[in-house]
């Protein structure tokens, strides 16, 4: 009985343990794997990310210079970021907004020319 009174009083004077969600948003910690980004200008189309990706959601075409990622298949493990030789892939801490359709991230870059072609 007295235990309960103690609890009731404590609860009356303590802060709410929930947030008023749309007004107060929790946010994410530094280093959270939220969204995958690519800096397409630095990409050399080596296809390492495509080969290492466990969910096989990345497709790279080194002739056409395209880099696409099935955003809905991505499992946000961050393996592609670790293996990228140029460091053009990165992850930001905000996760993708809710979507009503499946999205594909598609980027068009300039494919690196072979040395011979570049010399001409």
């Amino acid at each position: 009985m007295f235990n309960m009174t103690k609890n009731v009083v404590a609860n009356l004077f303590s802060k709410s343990s929930t947030r008023l969600y749309p007004i107060a948003v929790r946010g994410h910690f530094e280093g959270f794997r939220g969204t995958l980004h690519i800096n397409i200008d630095e990409c050399i189309f080596c296809r390492t990310c495509m080969i290492k990706c466990p969910s096989q959601c990345i497709a790279v075409d080194n002739k056409a210079g395209t880099w696409t990622c099935e955003a809905m298949s991505c499992v946000y493990c961050g393996v592609c970021v670790d293996v990228c030789p140029t460091g053009c892939l990165s992850m930001s801490k905000e996760h993708r907004p809710v979507a009503t359709e499946k999205q594909t991230m598609a980027y068009q870059g300039v494919p690196k020319k072979k040395k011979k072609e570049a010399a001409e």
Binding site: F29, E30, G31, C77, G78, D82, M91
Partner: peptide, 24 residues
């Protein structure tokens, strides 16, 4: 869960183990 998110980068599927060690 907060500790997990702050140290591993995800709440549940932490993905920190690799063959030979850990990633973070």
């Amino acid at each position: 869960m907060d500790i997990m998110e702050a140290t591993c980068g995800n709440r549940v599927v932490v993905s920190v183990n690799v063959i030979g060690g850990v990633r973070r």
